[in-house]
């Protein structure tokens, strides 16, 4: 029985991050500050939904990042693409009067193009993903600033401004903010893709052994590019949510989001060398980062200490992942 459990843990890479999440959750309850009325502030519904809302943008980005990292790449441009998409959204709905549907389409399309360019440069230009997406990170930020004329664009409602339908992103349904639904649905859709669909297998194959994948008849270049396209698309989606929540498109937002996303993916057990990882793990990785920020924030820990603790947690999480039961065979 014990063996079976260990085997189950070894074969399902998402279990460790899930335990990490549970452990942190319990710790947070134990150390939660207590309100005047004697309730645990951490466990209040407000607080929990707040955590989910706060992580939903990074969460959506992390899904795309997981795909890219599975193919043994990296996408540093997601933060800038988020800012570009947010800017596009604000200008689309306010200045260009594209309406709800076409504004969103335009923003998503921007992300797709950015992802395609990164992927194509990596695949056909044979430039390392780090460099290709670093360039895209700089260029996308520049393009966002160009469009916005270096200022942020506020979103207002009413005649000649944003339609009421745009409020969907800030609304709450059944007590849960709409972006949280998007985050969860996106995670489920892509988890199904990774596990059940051909393309998901191909991502694993490329990350595990690119040469072998090529000789097995996979169109490695197209498949890899598609991972970057998904990453760009999801970063753009997060950008739309971002602008809607802040009622503005700011070309300077999203700085450092790529690092948070990479951290979440790594905490979630996905290997940076590719070919190994799960989206469920990433999901828990995102929650771990969210809860951590939240509980530290509730205690009034300042940003400086938060960052230091975050750094330590990432290292600790990866160290735990490395301890592999059944390293050789089973």
């Amino acid at each position: 029985m014990k063996k079976k459990i260990l085997l189950f843990i070894a074969q399902n890479e998402w279990i460790k991050p899930a335990f990490g999440f549970l452990g942190l959750f319990i710790l947070s309850i134990t150390f939660s500050p207590i309100s005047n009325k004697g309730t645990l502030i951490f466990l209040k519904l407000d607080n929990l939904t707040n955590i989910l809302r706060q992580v939903s943008e990074i969460g959506i980005i992390s899904v795309g990042m997981t795909l890219v990292i599975l193919t043994s790449g990296i996408d540093l441009s997601v933060g800038s693409v988020l800012a570009l998409s947010a800017t596009m959204t604000a200008f689309g709905i306010m200045d260009w009067q594209l309406g709800f549907f076409f504004t969103i389409l335009l923003a998503l399309f921007t992300g797709v193009v950015a992802g395609f360019i990164s992927g194509a440069i990596t695949s056909w230009g044979k430039i390392q993903a780090f460099i290709a997406t670093l360039s895209m990170m700089v260029a996308a930020r520049g393009f966002a600033l160009f469009i916005a004329g270096n200022n942020s664009r506020n979103i207002g409602f009413g005649n000649g401004a944003a339609p009421e339908s745009f409020r969907i992103f800030t609304n709450t349904y059944l007590g849960i903010p709409f972006p949280v639904y998007i985050f969860i649905i996106i995670t489920i859709i892509f988890a199904i893709m990774l596990n059940k669909m051909r393309l998901g297998r191909y991502f694993f194959a490329i990350g595990s052994n690119e040469e072998a994948a090529q000789l097995a008849g996979l169109r490695v270049k197209w498949i890899r590019t598609s991972a970057y396209v998904f990453s760009g698309l999801l970063a753009a989606l997060a950008g739309i949510i971002h602008s809607a929540q802040l009622y503005q498109g700011n070309p300077n937002d999203g700085v450092g989001f790529e690092l948070d996303a990479i951290a979440a993916v790594v905490i979630g057990g996905t290997s940076l060398s590719g070919g190994k990882g799960t989206l469920v793990g990433t999901f828990f990785g995102v929650l771990i980062i969210g809860i951590l920020s939240n509980i530290l924030g509730l205690h009034g820990v300042q940003k400086d200490f938060q960052l230091m603790i975050k750094g330590a947690i990432i290292v600790a999480a990866v160290l735990l992942q490395e301890q592999n039961f059944f390293k050789k065979g089973f």
Binding site: R201, F204, A205, S208, N209, E211, A212, A213, L215, G275, K276
Partner: peptide, 13 residues
């Protein structure tokens, strides 16, 4: 090793 196996993945895969 270099051009055939997906080492960490299953036999079916």
């Amino acid at each position: 090793k270099r051009e055939g196996n997906f080492h960490d993945l299953s036999l079916v895969f």
